[in-house]
Computed example of a mutant assay.
Amino acid sequence: MAGLELLQEVGLRIDGRRPDELRKLLCKLGVFTQADGSAYFEQGNTKVLATVYGPHEVRGGRSKILQDSAIINCQFSTATFSQVDRKNRPRGDRKSVEVTSHLKQTFSSSVKTELFPKTQIDIFVEVLQSDGGILSACINAATLALIDAGIPMKDYVCACTASLIYDIPLVDVSHAEKAGGGPELTIATLPNSDEIVYISMTHRFHLDYSSKVLDMAIQGCKQVYKLLDEAVKLHVSKLGISKK
Rank of each mutant, 00 (worst) to 15 (best):
L29K: 09
Y53I: 04
K64C: 02
T51W: 09
S77Q: 03
Q43R: 11
H56D: 00
Q75R: 14
L25W: 03
A70K: 01
D36W: 10
G44E: 01
V58N: 04
S38E: 04
H56N: 00
R62Y: 07
F32L: 15
D68Q: 05
H56Q: 03
S77F: 01
G37C: 06
C27D: 13
S69W: 02
F76A: 00
Q34H: 15
G30S: 07
G44Q: 00
V31G: 10
K28M: 12
G44N: 11
A70G: 08
D68R: 08
G54N: 08
Q67F: 14
L25S: 06
Q34Y: 15
N45V: 08
G61D: 05
Q34P: 04
A70H: 08
Y40C: 10
I65A: 04
G30Q: 07
S77C: 05
S77W: 03
T51I: 12
R62I: 07
S69K: 13
Q75A: 12
R59I: 00
G54C: 09
S69L: 08
T51C: 08
V58G: 04
E42M: 06
Q75T: 09
K24W: 11
V58T: 07
I65S: 07
R62T: 05
K28C: 12
S77D: 09
T33Y: 10
L26Q: 12
L25A: 11
Y40M: 12
E57Q: 03
G44V: 04
N45Y: 11
H56K: 10
G44S: 12
A35G: 03
T46G: 11
D68V: 08
V31C: 14
I71F: 02
G30Y: 02
T80C: 12
Y53R: 12
I71Q: 06
Q43I: 07
G54Q: 01
T80P: 02
S38V: 08
A79T: 11
L26F: 13
